[in-house]
Amino acid sequence: MRREFSKTIEKIAIEKQELIFLTGDLGFMALENIKEAIGERFVNAGVSEQNIVSMAAAMASEGLLPVCYSIAPFIVFRPAEQIRLDVCLHNLNVKIVGNGGGYGYGIMGATHHAIEDIAVLTSFQNMKCFIPISNEDVEGTINAMFQHVGPSYLRLGFGVLPEGVSLPEFRHTRKLYIGRDITVIGMGPVLLNIFKLVGKPNSTFTADVFVISEMPVPILSEEIKHSIKKTGHVLIIEEHVKRGGLGEHLASHILENNLQCTFNQLYAKGYPNGRYGSQSYHQSLNGLDANNIELAINQILHG
């Protein structure tokens, strides 16, 4: 998604002269176009995420539009207090951008993964998280993020929309596929694994598939409510830990709406065997790949 991100930011930065792009010394082979296009408004502040976030809060208080970019865990966890105090408690229009959400950095290892970012950030006041599902979704998601005036987080990853799947315009909840047996709700590119199963000639089930692209999700959409009433089964898919993730957020909505259903979750469990590999390896190890999703759904539907 980095390519789509840099192209979109370049476009927005040319239009919005108040945009200041702050990077924590990252962006090689990815952000050169932004640097070229906006000159002195592109600031490599060095590897100093805490300073970057506090400075961004101050810049926003002066009417500038700062974007803070780094690898997701570096720009979320290291300066978490700066995000909480200087950005969120002052409700300032700072855009935090983390590349490599979930296990996106694969073999780079745990230091480079962000599987608790949404839990941390959605617990902060005024923060909105924006999570594109695929490369094709990045521009629309970024535009939505810039329409929101306030603390924002963009979780970038990597994912290509499969052929035959169409993506509606950005909304916090979008329906991607119509089925009848189960309601599958996911966040981020990991949800695309469901499309290796639904709509295939040998598929043993059909599913309503929804993507959530804004966290905390403000309301449970009517479409999701109807779907749950119809299927009676919910499966959550997220490349994020269970605590504070999509599943827990939606569970509270489902309870508040008195919806009767079985509630099932596939999520990131961390590093169950202590070993590292590609993003696909981690997805597989955590039950998030297509085979494990199929097993989980068959278990839910047929016991």
Partner: peptide, 14 residues
């Protein structure tokens, strides 16, 4: 540890 970063951001903005 926040004040100098905030002040630096304000100074940069100015």
């Amino acid at each position: 540890g926040h004040g100098l970063s905030l002040s630096t951001g304000l100074a940069f903005s100015n």
